[in-house]
Structures are given as structure tokens and as C-alpha cells.
Amino acid sequence: GEEMDTAEIARQVKEQLIKHNIGQRIFGHYVLGLSQGSVSEILARPKPWNKLTVRGKEPFHKMKQFLSDEQNILALRSIQGR
């Protein structure tokens, strides 16, 4: 696969979550399948791509996919709003 700019992906995700008022817990649960603790760690201190294991890269693939389609963001927003 291609190398990803993990810091940039994390920054964009944080931006979207704040902009749409989506909590990290909801994002972690529905998008990444991770706990809030793992999510906040990944978003606060993303490791460089070449330092990640295959498993460590997974959340970034999912985040990139999440960012690529605004429908994903809107869907999360409606879950959050319940």
C-alpha cells in the first residue's frame, strides 16, 4: 500500500470531529472499533507510517476512508445526536 501521512490524517479527523461535534468515543466505536483511550492516543500522537505494524496501520486506513466520504461524517453526526 501507499505510505500515509498519519499526522495529517489525524489532524483532519480531529478537525471533522470538532466541526461536527462528534465525540471520540462514538468515532472510535463506529469507525475504528477501538476504545476512546486508543482513539485519543492515535489522534494525539500518531506514529509515523513506517513505524506502524500492519495492525497499527488499520485505523489510518479506516480514518482515510471515513474522510473520503462526507456521508460517513453525516451518519456519525446523526448517531451522536440521538
Rank of each mutant, 00 (worst) to 15 (best):
S40N: 12
L34I: 11
R25T: 14
A10N: 02
I22V: 10
P48V: 05
L52D: 00
E8A: 09
P46S: 02
K47W: 05
K51S: 13
S68H: 06
R11Q: 06
G1V: 12
N72H: 11
F60V: 00
E8D: 12
S78M: 13
D5F: 02
M4E: 07
P59M: 15
S40Y: 09
S78Q: 15
G23H: 13
P59K: 12
E41C: 07
I79E: 11
A10H: 00
R82M: 11
V39C: 12
V39H: 01
L67V: 06
S38W: 06
M4W: 07
D69R: 07
G28L: 05
G81Y: 08
S68D: 12
E70W: 07
I42G: 01
L34R: 04
R77N: 09
F66W: 15
S68K: 12
L34A: 07
F66L: 02
I26A: 11
E70K: 10
K19F: 07
Y30T: 08
G1A: 11
L76F: 03
E8R: 08
L17V: 02
E2T: 09
S40V: 08
L74W: 10
A7C: 10
K19N: 07
A7Q: 12
W49T: 04
K19H: 14
N21S: 10
Q65W: 07
K51G: 07
R55Q: 15
K14I: 06
R82Y: 10
R77T: 12
G28I: 06
M4Q: 07
V54G: 11
E58S: 06
L74M: 10
R77M: 10
R77S: 14
E8V: 08
D5N: 10
L52S: 00
P46L: 05
T6A: 02
V39M: 06
P59Y: 14
K57H: 04
S40I: 09
K57A: 07
E41P: 02
E58I: 06
P48E: 09
I42F: 06
N72I: 06
I9V: 09
E15M: 07
K47M: 11
G37P: 10
K14S: 15
G37C: 12
V13S: 03
F60R: 00
L76T: 02
M63W: 00
H61V: 13
L74Q: 13
R55N: 08
S40F: 08
K51M: 12
K51W: 05
P46N: 02
F27T: 00
L17E: 03
V39R: 00
S40E: 15
G23D: 15
P48D: 06
Q36E: 14
H61C: 08
N72T: 09
I26G: 03
G81E: 15
N72V: 05
L52A: 00
R25M: 10
R45Y: 10
H20K: 04
R55V: 11
H29G: 05
M63Y: 00
F60I: 05
L74P: 04
G37Y: 12
G81R: 12
L76P: 03
E3W: 12
F66C: 00
I18S: 13
F66S: 01
G28Q: 04
K57D: 00
L32E: 01
K19R: 09
M63L: 04
K62G: 02
H20L: 05
R45Q: 12
G37F: 10
H29M: 11
L52R: 00
A10S: 08
L34Y: 06
H61L: 15
D69Q: 07
L17N: 02
V54K: 14
L76Q: 03
V31K: 00
G1M: 14
I73C: 09
D5H: 05
I73H: 04
W49P: 11
I22P: 02
F60Q: 02
L74K: 14
Y30C: 11
G81D: 14
S78A: 14
Q65L: 10
L67N: 03
